[in-house]
Amino acid sequence: MWDVSAMNQLPGYMKLCYRSLLDVYSETEKDMADQGRLYRLHFAKEAMKTLVRNYFYEAKWCHQNYVPSLDEYMTVALVTSGYSMLATTSFVGMGNIVTKEAFEWLFTNPKMIKASSVICRLMDDMVSHKFEQKRGHVASSIECFMIQHGATEEEARE
C-alpha cells in the first residue's frame, strides 16, 4: 500500500522506515509529474513491491528454520540482492536517455541484470555466510548447496 494510513498497521520500529519510503516516492512523484515522466514512478514502485515480497519469503524461511533448495533460494535471493531494484531506481532519474521501453525491457529480467545479480549474490553469500549464520539469518547459497548436495563448506564455495 502506498498510503500513510497503512502505517497504523505496522509495528513501531517499521513506521519511520515506511514514512521515509513514502516521502521519497512522494517527492519523486512531484518531480516526475513536472517533467511528464510519471510512468517511471510506476516502475519504481513495482520494483519495490517485488523486492519487499521476496524479503517476506526470506523472513518466513528464517522464522521457520527452512532451508530451501539452491534453485528455490536463488529465485528469491536474486531479487533480494537488490540489483534489479537498483537498476530500476537508477533509470528513474536519468533524464531523456531512458524511455518507457527501457523500463519495460528492464522488467523482462534481461540476461545482463540476471547475470550481474547471480555474481553479486554469490559473492555476497561467500563473504557473509558465517556472520549471517551466527546472527540467525536465513540460509545462504552456501548452506543451501551444502544441505542439498551433502557437501562441505569448501565444496560449496568452489
Rank of each mutant, 00 (worst) to 15 (best):
N54W: 00
Q35G: 09
F91E: 03
F103S: 05
T88Q: 04
L106M: 15
L38N: 07
Q64Y: 07
Q35V: 05
D71F: 00
K49I: 11
F43P: 08
A59F: 05
G36L: 07
K111A: 12
G93A: 02
V67I: 15
L41R: 09
T89E: 06
K45G: 06
L51N: 06
M112Q: 14
I113W: 00
E58Q: 14
Y55D: 08
V76L: 02
K60M: 10
N96V: 05
F107Q: 11
R40D: 02
L86V: 11
N65T: 10
S90C: 12
T80A: 02
G93V: 00
K100R: 15
E46W: 00
N54Y: 01
K60V: 14
Q35M: 13
D31F: 03
A115C: 07
K30R: 14
T50P: 00
G93C: 03
Y55H: 10
P68W: 02
A44N: 01
E72F: 01
R40M: 03
Y66C: 08
D23Q: 15
D71Y: 01
V92A: 02
L38P: 01
D31G: 09
R40K: 14
S26I: 02
T75K: 11
V79C: 09
E72G: 02
F91C: 10
F56H: 12
F103A: 03
V52R: 02
C62S: 12
Y25F: 15
V76Y: 00
